[in-house]
Design a protein around this nucleic acid. Structure first.
Ligand SMILES: [Mn+2]
Ligand SMILES: [Mn+2]
Ligand SMILES: [Mn+2]
Ligand SMILES: [Mn+2]
Lengths: 212, 212
DNA sequence: TGAAATAATAAGGTTTGCCTTATAATTATC
DNA sequence: GATAATTATAAGGCAAACCTTATTATTTCA
């Protein structure tokens, strides 16, 4: 879980232990303890006051965890019709209980999908994968129209909130207004206007609208 | 796990804590401790020196665990082509991580199967199920020909051993000889003769051969 | 540059599910 | 009916992954 959290949080730069604690719903002290244990195992490197980075070994394991996680998300969504917002949490439980044989057989069964239902890439069996190159929605200029590439959130309530507003991978939206003082964005999706706080907008990865 | 073990071991009579310990690969003392905890929770009843029984509540939970377990076995076998002997262990891990929504969606996806690949019945969502009515192979008279209804084993090595000798649900076999002093059985399966120890034969549930 | 905020450590605790070793109670067997 | 085997309980421990409450170190910023 820590390794996965690391991979989920980091875009190659170091992750603050406080962010890890937050993401994993654990106290900062607990996160620190765990970081120490994983560092001792050679899976991450902790530079005090700077943050945590994965080692090669750690990154490989993390990739495999994410692979399992996202393959399950695909299965749960495409075959079991589990509701979109709960895919992450359910796949997250299954992931821990998945043997390598099952992971690979699942990949074959699913036809080697390359993205999960949240739009995030699925690492290859060898751990390699192309990270998303999109821009987070909070960084989009007012007036621009973009397509949602992925939702980077994992918390069910966040996913549920975005789902209800139809902010989903593949949808096209226009940034109508950005309130001052880091205020919320007003977006147009499917001819409807919605308001989205900046912290939520950070979870939305966008790419330039292909029709433009 | 204890509840499932109970359900797997008991044919309605009490189960000795020593059997539980054995089945779960745990010391008798640990099994006793756990039995106490589960009794405190009202899931089982322990009559010292007599054995353990499930309460209604315990039986319902156990049925659900078994349902999840066997549905996963079906999925792993039919769709992921996992090897027969490892189905139990892999489904056993997944089972712990399976939410009720996933269980039911899986049942729908699989078309509500009634038996698992080992031939054991899959309980309904309400916990009800018809236990097997067959005779264990060790109790079959020499000369009789029977059909294997189910394999009641859970340990991978036992399942592997039976698989290699093609003692599988649906197969037909004849008891050629029973060695004296609780010695092994000689069986004829697919025109081949094999020898099977009595303790292994206990795992094989048979029914009268339909062609006779 | 000196507080205030943030991050790290230290110390001690809890829970769960195991373990060993020892003793006591019951049941089975000769 | 005595002895042996089985079963149960008592007592003390361990490891993992959490927790709280302090204390200390570093960084940030007014
Ligand atoms: Mn997980
Ligand atoms: Mn299990
Ligand atoms: Mn400590
Ligand atoms: Mn104790």
């Amino acid at each position: 879980m820590y390794l996965k959290a690391m991979a989920e949080l980091s875009n190659h730069e170091a992750v603050a232990t406080a962010r890890l604690a937050e993401h994993l719903n654990v106290t900062p002290v607990s996160a620190n303890e765990m970081v120490r244990r994983l560092s001792d195992q050679g899976l991450m490197i902790h530079t005090p006051y700077k943050g945590v980075t994965l080692t090669e070994k750690g990154r490989t394991i993390a990739s495999n965890v994410i692979r399992r996680q996202r393959l399950w998300e695909c299965f749960l969504y495409d075959y079991l019709k589990i509701e979109w917002a709960r895919l992450y949490e359910m796949a997250c439980s299954l992931e821990h209980a998945t043997a390598p044989e099952v992971t690979e057989a699942l990949a074959v069964f699913l036809g080697h999908p390359t993205v999960c239902p949240r739009g995030n890439p699925i690492p290859e069996a060898d751990g390699s994968f192309t990270p998303l190159n999109g821009t987070t929605l909070n960084a989009i200029t007012v007036g621009e129209t973009v397509t949602v590439q992925a939702i980077n959130a994992t918390a069910t309530d966040v996913l549920q909130y975005l789902y209800e507003r139809r902010v989903l991978p593949g949808c096209t939206l226009t940034v109508i207004e950005a309130a001052p003082l880091q205020g919320p964005l007003t977006l147009k999706i499917n001819e409807k206007e919605i308001v989205l706080g900046l912290s939520l907008a950070k979870f939305v990865i966008t790419k330039p609208n292909p029709t433009e």
